[in-house]
Simulated scan of single mutants.
Amino acid sequence: MSTHEPTRTNDARTHEVADPILEIRDAEVVFEMDRGVSRVLDNVSIDIERGEVLGIVGESGSGKSMLASAMLDAVVDPGILSGEITFHPPDGEPVDVLAQDQEGIRELRWEDISMVFQGAMSSFNPTMKVGGHFEETLKAHEYDVEAGMERARELLADLYLEPDRVLDSFAHELSGGMQQRALIALSLVLEPDVLVMDEPTAALDLLMQRSILALLEELKAKYDLTLVFITHDLPLIAELADRLAVMYAFELVEVADSDSILSRAVHPYTRSLLNATPNLDAPLSEMRPIEGSAPDPVNVPEGCSYHPRCPLADEECVSQDPGFRPTHTEDHLAACFHWEEASEAIPFNIEREVNDE
């Protein structure tokens, strides 16, 4: 473990919290390509509060999954990750994630920060029973297998699965929802503090999605977890998340508590994203797809990256990066010069209910 204290920066895109479990500063991922440098994470800085649920949302290709991989120093070659990522365990010194050797990063993953990927079926070895995956994970991290399997049974029961049946099954013998819940149990068997979930419900129907969100809320409370939930479905995760971080063109463009985003989103992209999301309360005729397309990572526009698609864009937006700035509250940050005009220019297509507690 590193004793290196995280450096506070004056980065305008930083959103600090009182008790961070993860601090991310200037995280950048680039790929060298024949046609140029592809930047798929662009100087992202954010704190993640201990015990919170942070939802990270945006269109496909916005950089959400790359940010998740960066948190675990799991960016695949030939990607180059730079910046500073610091994990604060409940006890002990801060851990400089990017300075860990192979053994240090092996311990960090699964034991401190665990991840659930999209598509449970591809995460299981089809020739190995589900119970074998738990045993293999426990042995690889030198955990007591007998005690670990008892925890596995408890986790599976918490997720409303029959432990013995699931452990004695191959993944293909389980439904999609059962596979995803078994994978969540596997990700928690080593008692991590942080669970990062990358589109974990994308392949499931709406009823199962909501069921898993409810189960995650129960698990968070029982096991004192910090959850990072990555999705393109902003309204879905808003029901679970304490805060939302909206990504566009590989960077953060708006960060605030969930109720504030749902009722008073100020970035034109966030408001358009909400209007483009299917909702049972809004007829299809009221849905408004976002015009244009996300930028090429080799050729991200200068100035505000959203300006080619934004109805409020002017010369200032084309030539200057707006940086993060407080909006109607100090904790509601957005990268937009014209945030005060966004609600009138892009009205919501439905009245959104929020939690007033």
Rank of each mutant, 00 (worst) to 15 (best):
P295L: 12
Q180V: 08
S263F: 09
A68C: 09
T270H: 04
S272T: 06
N43H: 10
V255P: 01
H267S: 04
T201P: 00
A313Q: 13
L22Q: 05
L41C: 14
S285E: 08
H307P: 03
S293H: 05
E302I: 00
T3I: 12
S175P: 00
S187F: 06
D233W: 08
T231A: 11
V40S: 00
A157H: 05
G292V: 05
M1L: 12
A171E: 04
I237G: 00
N299E: 14
I105E: 13
I237C: 01
V75M: 11
A70G: 11
T7Y: 01
T226N: 06
V318M: 10
T127N: 13
V29K: 02
D331P: 07
S114V: 08
M287C: 13
P20V: 03
F31I: 09
T329P: 01
G303F: 03
D144T: 00
R288W: 07
S263G: 14
V228E: 09
C304R: 11
L227N: 14
D281S: 02
H4P: 02
S69Y: 15
C336Q: 15
V37A: 00
L274M: 08
K139W: 03
F87N: 00
E28P: 04
G92M: 07
V29R: 05
V97F: 04
A294M: 00
R106D: 13
L72M: 04
G131A: 13
V300S: 11
R35D: 08
H4I: 11
M71Q: 06
D296I: 03
L234F: 00
T14A: 03
H328C: 14
E251D: 12
R151V: 09
G303T: 06
A68L: 08
V189R: 00
E351T: 04
P308F: 04
S123P: 05
L98W: 01
T9D: 04
D168R: 02
L215M: 02
H172D: 09
G79T: 11
S285C: 08
E199H: 03
E23Y: 07
V298Y: 08
L108W: 10
A214F: 06
H4D: 12
T86S: 07
D101V: 10
L227M: 15
F229W: 01
A334G: 10
D321H: 15
L213G: 12
I85A: 14
G303E: 09
T9Y: 07
P289D: 11
D233Y: 12
L215R: 11
P94R: 02
E353A: 07
I184D: 10
E316L: 14
A70I: 02
M247S: 08
F348T: 07
D158V: 08
R106K: 15
R271L: 14
S69R: 15
A185D: 10
K222V: 15
P89A: 13
E218W: 09
L108D: 12
E107Q: 15
N275K: 07
L284A: 09
L72H: 00
I237V: 05
G83W: 15
E254K: 02
S169E: 10
E340I: 09
A18N: 15
G79A: 03
L216Y: 12
V44Y: 01
E154C: 07
V266A: 04
L81A: 03
